[in-house]
Simulated assay, not measured.
Amino acid sequence: MTAPTPSPSARPDVERLRGYSAPLEGRRGLLRLDFNENTIGPSPAVVEALRAFPADQIAVYPEYDGLREAVIGNLQDSPAGLAHALLPQQVGLFNGVDAAIHAVIHAYGASGDTLLTTSPTFGYYAPCAGMQGMVVEAVPHELPGFRFPLEAMRAALQRGPKILMLCNPNNPTGTRLSAEHVLLLASSAPDTLVVVDELYEAFTGDSVLPHVDFAEHANLLVLRSLAKTAGLAGLRMGFAIGSAEVVDRVCRVSGPYDVNSFAVTAAFAALSDQAYTDHYVAEVLRARNYLVTELTRSGAVFHVDGGNYLLVWPRFSAQQVEQQLRDAGILVRSMAGKPQIDGSLRVSIGTQEQMQRFWECYRKLER
């Protein structure tokens, strides 16, 4: 019997890599409070637009005419607006922000370069950096309170990292960084690409976009998504906003048709119904206040700041409580093994009705 032929080896950087894995199977029919998603679904306008999608267009490569302008118009019409007008070539379109993060690191990171970030933070930054052979330097948040390590970050920038990746507000700690401090960091390191991942910005209003002039801060790039607020996580729609030169270089390493036609159609509809998104965000903030009140009243150990999520430390094993909640039809995310927050659960915030359901179940498990 012939021995099996071994598979070819990948690049050494990939062979050493531990890939990012998200436990996304078996979630249907459960209350999903584990991935910070919109918990009620997209605007009816999105659903109607997808139902009306012409069948013959499925066989045609997607077109993006007008979508960049729609993104700019949506940003300009927001309460804070934009500091300076944007041109279409300053908006990159991606198959979700995950693809944008990958493209940024692929375009700007080389083997031996440093990616600077905080710890703990979104788990996909490190694998993307590892794919390129980059070194990851993660500066811990300041305790108590998971405060942003501003002075330590300024000192680290003096060592010349290629990329600074900031999640603002930070997932999973909710740590917030003011636009003033984002611009301070960008100004202090003009040779470092400063990427601000603003997926959860709508829940805080801390965006740097109403304050930045990309002609002055050409090393700044802002990432946005329609996943967490507008409910398009399943269709993958992300944006990168910055100077035309940086956006061009990031887009060079992406496929020409990475964003599919359904996502484009849904994005147009979602951007045209901002009132729906604003209503959902307001409901999440009300529900968060409700849950914080109940947690405080019960004496629970928890942490909440920005974003549509909070951290709670159960009295019993976090893994045990996570499983008991799953058995009751409620999903949360264990933070086991993460620095500073080991033993906690990250709980996404949905509607007040959903958080009442979570609380009724959680408090029984804590008795």
Rank of each mutant, 00 (worst) to 15 (best):
S78N: 09
G81R: 08
L82H: 02
A85I: 07
L86Y: 02
L87Q: 15
L87C: 11
Q90G: 04
F94W: 05
N95L: 12
H102W: 12
A103Y: 03
V104P: 00
H106A: 15
Y108H: 15
A110Y: 10
A110M: 13
S111T: 15
T114I: 11
T118N: 09
T118A: 12
T118R: 07
F122M: 12
Y125Q: 09
A126Q: 12
A126K: 08
G130N: 06
G130T: 00
M131L: 15
M131E: 15
V136N: 05
E137L: 14
A138F: 00
P140C: 06
E142K: 13
F148W: 10
P149M: 00
L150N: 08
A152Q: 15
M153D: 00
A156S: 13
L157N: 05
Q158S: 14
Q158T: 14
Q158M: 15
G160W: 07
K162G: 00
K162T: 09
I163G: 05
L164K: 05
L164F: 11
C167Y: 12
N168Y: 04
P169I: 03
N171E: 14
P172W: 05
P172S: 06
T173F: 00
G174M: 07
T175M: 10
T175Y: 00
L177D: 03
S178W: 00
S178Y: 01
H181E: 15
L185I: 07
L185H: 01
A186Y: 09
A186W: 10
P190S: 11
T192V: 09
V195E: 00
V196A: 06
D197R: 04
E198F: 01
L199N: 12
Y200G: 02
E201W: 08
A202L: 09
F203H: 14
F203D: 11
